[in-house]
Design a protein around this nucleic acid. Structure first.
Lengths: 147, 147
DNA sequence: CTGACTGCAAAATCTTTGCAAAGAC
DNA sequence: GTCTTTGCAAAGATTTTGCAGTCAG
């Protein structure tokens, strides 16, 4: 894990490159994510920031806006489960995983025996009773790269 | 992939076992999922059903309620991306995947070299420019199994 | 018959947007 | 100075819930 200074510098550069500005709010959002190794929702991040920096004015909208910037550029990952905005598919067919294109939202399905095997091993190692799994690889599909 | 009759029988049994009732709406939701191999949102499912069965009265609430039953019992999988209700984490640290306990929502992180390697191979095979990936294994953690 | 199911509309969540004031460069 | 950012509140979008009538078993 990088130290905070390096991380901050990466962020500043990122903002500069995009013609965006470096603000106190943005800095402290990054800091909060850094100090809190857990996975946090936007609301949780807001709560932590209000507690930790009582003098800072900060609103939920800023958190959302900043997280979008960070996520687009790959500095943070997001993870949704038990969440809204889901798509459903029948689970009876042979299991498979997904490649998701971030440009056109296209979904490609694939099945890979090595990965299936490995998952079982991991579940076992953690004494975890596996009921399902989802693996999504995100990126840019061939069609969109060609554009 | 199972044929529809078998699938339907599985569903009827499932409902029976849970003391729930088999209704026209529930049957047709399953049928719509079956005939539509794509991944669909609840709204999309509603739209397809209204078009295909103009005489059936069906509301969005029923779709949500039925999908919950189906998902809980593992007959359908759900997939969320670009979605609401997300949790965020810094992506700078070494990449890892997650085990998510469905009981207590606990998150366990792990890293597995074999899986990382395999993902790269898959992306390459599909000419996919990978920017990230999320793998979540869902199940019941040791603590919750012991309860 | 009895208890579960349904649609509807209202409520609850979660996220995005418009706007005027403030701040970064 | 100029253009972006901010907080706020309002608007949107998505999902859940309460209720009275309906239906399955």
């Amino acid at each position: 894990m990088l130290d905070y200074e390096t991380l901050l510098e990466t962020f500043r550069k990122l903002l500069r490159d995009k013609g965006l500005k470096f603000t106190k709010q943005r800095e402290l959002i990054l800091k909060t994510l850094y100090e809190n190794k857990d996975h946090s929702t936007p609301e949780e991040i807001l709560g932590m920031m209000k507690k930790q920096y009582p003098d800072l004015t900060i609103g939920i909208a800023t958190i959302y806006r900043t997280l979008s910037v960070l996520e687009e550029s790959g500095m943070v990952d997001s993870l949704s489960f038990g969440a809204k905005g889901k798509k459903y598919e029948l689970g009876i067919k042979a299991h498979h995983d997904h490649l998701i294109c971030l440009e056109c939202e296209k979904l490609i399905e694939f099945y890979d025996e090595t990965i299936e095997e490995q998952q079982k091993k991991i579940a076992k190692k953690f004494n975890f009773k596996m009921t399902g799994h989802i693996m999504n690889i995100t990126g840019i599909c061939k069609d969109c790269q060609d554009k």
